[in-house]
């Protein structure tokens, strides 16, 4: 008898559709769907996907509680040996859904779980709670990701002892295991130092934690005298996207004037973002960048001034390093322009 597995995927991998179908509610299908085939093939009959849960990414993010309850009820009924989710690569909402639902299955049903995604995916924040296999940042990495996840999944189902994260290929989860090194510490340290001096690769035995947090700035004292700028990762651009900001993995940001503009409208602005259904933002871009309301507040004197320029990019699969670089650069421009506060909107 083979192990029984339930698989979680999104609307895209179930072939239902892209962003325009991201709102679909969870559904349960018998057997494997889409990437589940690759898992089944890797398991060669030792384990098999008995059912697949399909859920739209936006639906999960916007109705997390209801979606989670429904999915937990199904998984409880099916009582599989393992619950596997994804892989989600660098899809933010999908990764978040995979990690969140896997964690819920583990915590509430006591069933073994596994997911896979790119290290920068926000879902990877749960790596201390559930096992996450690191993958490439796009679905092109499926051929490598599926067998890697399948291998670890089988090990979990068989109840075999888990090796270190670098041996069994999961993201380090903060759990330390004692073992004896072949060489004593002083010898290893000297070797490491020599390698470092010679510019050769070396691996630290104690990586420093990286908590990149920035303390909040003091509040704005008097809004009626403040210049406030609007920024967005929702891809709002002048109609025609003059600077060709990419619909995903953006390589640059845009700086556009809204001086004298009372409100954005269908004729003048649209979104370049390829990671959400653009219908609503294209019809009325104030839904993402609230120029209309800010102008009213400016007239009323509630705020001093709406800054003449807005900064925008597409936050869809865009590398954290790129986003960091964009904002570090335009933050200096905002400072020089005397901007006192920023409203950043994200989709």
């Amino acid at each position: 008898m083979s192990y029984r597995v339930v698989h979680y995927i999104n609307q895209f991998f179930a072939n239902i559709g892209g962003e325009e179908m991201a709102h679909v509610a969870p559904e349960l299908r018998e057997g494997f769907v889409g990437p589940g085939l690759a898992f089944n093939q890797s398991w060669k009959g030792e384990a098999e996907i008995v059912a697949t849960v399909v859920c739209g990414d936006s639906h999960f993010a916007e109705h997390e509680k209801e979606a989670q309850e429904q999915i937990l009820a199904w998984v409880k009924e099916l009582n599989p040996d393992l619950f596997i989710a994804g892989p989600a690569f660098n899809a933010g909402r999908y990764g978040y859904a995979c990690a969140t639902i896997a964690n819920a299955v583990k915590e509430q049903l006591g069933i073994k779980v596994l997911t896979g995604m790119y290290e920068e995916n926000p879902g990877a924040d749960l790596k201390d709670k559930i096992l996450i296999v690191p993958t490439a940042n796009s679905a092109a990495g499926m051929r490598k990701a599926a067998p890697a996840m399948a291998k670890l999944a089988l090990k979990l189902m068989k109840g075999e002892k888990l090796g270190a994260s670098c041996e069994d290929n999961y993201m380090p989860n903060g759990i330390r295991v004692n073992f004896f090194e072949k060489e004593r510490g002083s010898k290893r340290a000297v070797k490491m130092l020599l390698n470092k001096l010679a510019d050769k690769p070396f691996v630290t035995e104690y990586p420093m934690p990286s908590f990149d947090r920035v303390a909040p700035n003091p509040a704005v004292k008097d809004l009626s005298k403040a210049t406030i700028a609007l920024c967005t990762s929702g891809g709002i651009v002048p109609k025609g996207n003059p600077d060709h900001i990419e619909s995903s993995s953006a390589s640059h940001y845009g700086e556009y004037s809204i001086a004298g503009v009372e409100a954005l409208c269908e004729a003048t602005h649209e979104t370049a973002h390829g990671g959400y259904d653009p219908v609503y933002a294209n019809a009325d871009a104030n839904r993402v960048l609230p120029v209309d309301v800010m102008r009213e507040f400016e007239r009323e004197g509630k705020i001093g001034k709406l800054h003449d320029l807005f900064y925008t990019t597409v936050g869809n699969g865009t590398a954290v390093a790129s986003a960091k670089k964009f904002a570090a650069e335009y933050a200096q421009k905002l400072l020089q322009a005397g901007v006192n506060a920023v409203i950043m909107t994200s989709t």
């Binding site: 986003a323 933050a331 920023v342």
Partner: peptide
């Protein structure tokens, strides 16, 4: 991006739907 704006010394508010992601990025 919010973090870089904050780092530059400008107070910033993040308006978004998936607030756990905003917490993760450090708004």
């Amino acid at each position: 991006m919010v973090k870089e704006i904050e780092r530059a010394g400008i107070p910033v508010v993040h308006m978004c739907t998936v607030t756990p992601i905003s917490m993760t990025v450090g708004a």
